[in-house]
Design a protein around this nucleic acid. Structure first.
Lengths: 202, 202
DNA sequence: TGTACATCAGTGAACGCGCGTTCACTGATGTAC
DNA sequence: TGTACATCAGTGAACGCGCGTTCACTGATGTAC
């Protein structure tokens, strides 16, 4: 079929290619576009070949979730290495989060798509865990900010952490629905100003 | 088949039943559970009978979106009739919004499920329009609050309106993922306190 | 009031399609002796 | 260094399933005369 010499690649390489292809497919065509056939074709394989590297669609999806979790937590980790000032940390995490969404359009599609976990309690729990893990990391930063007297101590860290996500989500949906026309970064920056004033000690 | 006498109902009644059944299905089983077959069975019809009352699945979905739009805007309308105090309006709209989500679990599933509009530009535009319409109504209330010197005039009404949605969305997702264990009302109330302080004139 | 016909909601069988998955087979590469 | 065999990635045909949709048909109700 192909003019150039036929070449088999080992499983690790293929697994990475498949996850990558899946993310691209979801980014461009949505969750419906994420099929084993489309996946395989995208990296020049026949659909059944994908089953040499993954047990099935479920496993591919699980790996995608792992990837997303990792991406989000890395943002927090490197930010915390950069600075120890709590408000500055939150600000940078916000900006990195937005950039991550802009760079990986598949992420909001998966996280928001409540559809994904239906009839699959394990998956639902997994996504719940990812979000809670992220919120937990934010909680820690916020609590530190309260101890250092940078953040109002009368607010629950959990409330602040959720409002943090609230700065991003509605904008992300509008950005997505408007096919990129809505200015997500600018909007987040304005939200941040209001948010910071609301939580910092005046 | 059925023991009780066979009875045909007219199209208006059936249309209402079908929309209702569709919302229930989405609420309980997610968007994947929304099929013409399940729909029809739920109201005691054979799948093909549904096509007597709707051209197809697309049309059913369009009508669901109309229903949601109506529900959201009604919340704003009746609140504005109750009180003319801008901050009180926003507070009540927030509570009503939360109650609407709790009463119609299908709504967050549809609005968040970015999947829905894929490959269907018209539908995407329609949902964008619904959200923008809601934001527009909030904008008006906010602008009035700024003119009456209840709300800080240095903030863009659009920013405030989006943050308003941000009070609801992350909580709604957690509430959904936790299968109702997350206390959405309480969380919204706490968010409101922070939000009000952030936008009101001190 | 009775008859002939149109309308309208509901039925069941059948279709085409896409998708996830399986399986026997192939051909290249790695390994044991 | 050469031969025999195992392993491993890729192939293509085929499956079963669910779903959206169509269509000829049925039986009750409404309407015209």
């Amino acid at each position: 079929m192909s003019p150039k010499k036929w070449r088999a690649l080992n499983t690790e390489v293929r697994q990475e290619q498949i996850i990558q292809a899946a993310m691209e497919l979801i980014a461009v065509r949505g969750l419906k576009g994420f099929s084993m056939a489309a996946l395989a074709n995208r990296i020049g394989l026949v659909p059944s070949a994908a089953y040499r590297h993954f047990k099935g669609k479920e496993e591919v999806f699980d790996r995608i979730l792992d990837f997303i979790q990792e991406r989000l937590l890395v943002n927090i980790r490197i930010t915390c290495e950069e600075t120890s000032e709590p408000l500055e940390r939150l600000h940078r995490i916000l900006m990195r989060h937005v950039e991550t969404l802009r760079g990986n359009r598949a992420i909001p599609r998966i996280i928001f798509a409540e559809d994904v976990f239906n009839g699959n309690a394990k998956r639902r729990t997994k996504i719940y865990g990812i979000i809670n893990g992220y919120l937990g990391a934010l909680n820690e930063i916020i609590r530190e900010g309260q101890q250092k007297a940078h953040i109002r101590p009368d607010l629950e860290p959990e409330t602040i952490a959720l409002m943090f996500l609230g700065m991003i989500q509605p904008g992300a949906i509008l950005w997505f629905l408007s096919e990129g026309n809505f200015n997500l970064s600018e909007h987040s920056e304005m939200n941040w100003c209001v948010f910071r004033e609301a939580i910092q000690i005046r």
